[in-house]
Simulated assay, not measured.
Amino acid sequence: MLGLEYFKFAQVWSPVALAVTLLLIAGYFILIGPIGDKYGQGETVPTGRRCLFVAGLLFLYLAQAGPIELLGHMMFSFHMVSMALSYLVAPPLLMLGVPLWIWRGLVSWLKRSPLRHLKFMLHPVVAAVIFNGLFSFYHIPAIHDYVMLHFGVHRLYYIVLFITSAMMWWSLVDPLPKQGEAQGLKKMGFIFLNMVLLTPACGLIIFAGEPLYATYSDPMIWAKAMGYCIPGDSSNLLERFGGPEFFGYLEPKIDQQVGGILMKFFQEIIFATMLAYVFLQWYRQENREDAEEELA
């Protein structure tokens, strides 16, 4: 169980967060049911979209409040799995699961609100630079350790990362057809840009000659950081386990390298799959237009 057996059920599964997740799922089905019938002009949400939204919420729960979050405070490799699920997997699933009538209403409201002046931040290149820049900045060792030890900053930074990741995904998943700015070759270029921008941060982590993060190598700092998941006197953790090496199935340096590789693997698989899909769609569209021109 990778060390989870040493902790209580509430510490591993965070019942409050689990209850909130289940309430959000219930609220979603009410929204697409009775409320959708009234305000959505009878638009039905396909089963596939419903499954995407539920999966997105469950992934977010596991990464930010469930077992993966706890493991992510003990091993850097699981920290990177948490990052990937939170910002590369959950956002597009949630966005694709939201009913179209809600997106149309939200976009209409944003066009009338003061936030319309920030529309430039949704430009594919700007959004990619902001998200990947914040993600890379967070994994500078001094910044990472500071955020992990200051819980208010930790939660705020994670919320900002989630919002900027949704901005980055907006043009990729294009939840409202014809609303996204990136189409065809432009969208493929945007996907490739995201693949490139995260490479330096992953490279720094993978090829570092020593452990970079005190959170996963210094017992005192690790115990303080664990206070985010395990409330109480951190000295108890030191007495019981001694430090993060108690749970590490790999040495700190190897664990760090595995984390960097996992993050890059998640990113490459997700974006490469999307790149192939977008290329196929673009290729079919081009052939369709050529055929129509020949018929004309």
Rank of each mutant, 00 (worst) to 15 (best):
P67W: 05
H139V: 08
T273F: 10
A214P: 04
R112F: 11
F246Q: 06
V16Q: 03
G260C: 06
E210L: 05
V258C: 03
Y249N: 01
S171R: 13
G180E: 10
D145G: 06
P91H: 07
L156G: 05
G248F: 04
W109I: 11
R49V: 08
L198D: 02
I140D: 00
A223I: 14
S113F: 11
L110C: 06
I221E: 07
Q257A: 12
Y138S: 11
L96H: 04
Y157T: 10
W282T: 11
I163W: 06
W170K: 02
P175A: 14
F279K: 04
L237G: 04
Q183M: 13
F9V: 11
D174S: 12
F9C: 00
G203Q: 14
I269E: 05
E43I: 04
I68Y: 06
M148V: 15
L197N: 04
I143H: 06
L193Y: 05
G42S: 07
Q64N: 06
I206Q: 03
Y249G: 01
K111Q: 09
D37E: 12
V147Y: 09
M274I: 05
P141T: 13
M195L: 10
Q281W: 01
D233E: 07
G184I: 09
M226P: 12
L57R: 04
G97K: 09
G259E: 00
N132V: 03
M168Q: 11
G105H: 08
G242T: 13
M75T: 05
E5G: 07
L250D: 08
G248D: 02
Q281N: 12
E245Q: 14
L70H: 05
P211I: 14
L172T: 10
V147G: 01
W282V: 08
Q179K: 12
G105K: 04
M1P: 08
H144I: 06
E5F: 04
T273I: 02
T47S: 08
R288T: 15
G40Y: 01
F279Y: 10
P124C: 06
E292R: 05
Y283L: 13
Y6W: 14
G243H: 01
A84I: 12
F279Q: 06
E43N: 03
A63C: 09
P219S: 15
M83S: 11
F246S: 03
L197I: 02
D37G: 08
L85P: 11
Y158V: 02
S113Q: 13
D145F: 09
E292C: 00
L4V: 14
V20F: 06
F279H: 10
H139E: 01
P92I: 01
Y28F: 15
F53D: 00
L58D: 12
M83Q: 12
F151A: 13
G40V: 00
Y61L: 00
W103D: 10
V12M: 01
Q281P: 00
G189N: 14
L88A: 10
G66W: 01
L275G: 15
L96M: 13
I143Q: 02
V173F: 07
Q257R: 14
V125W: 14
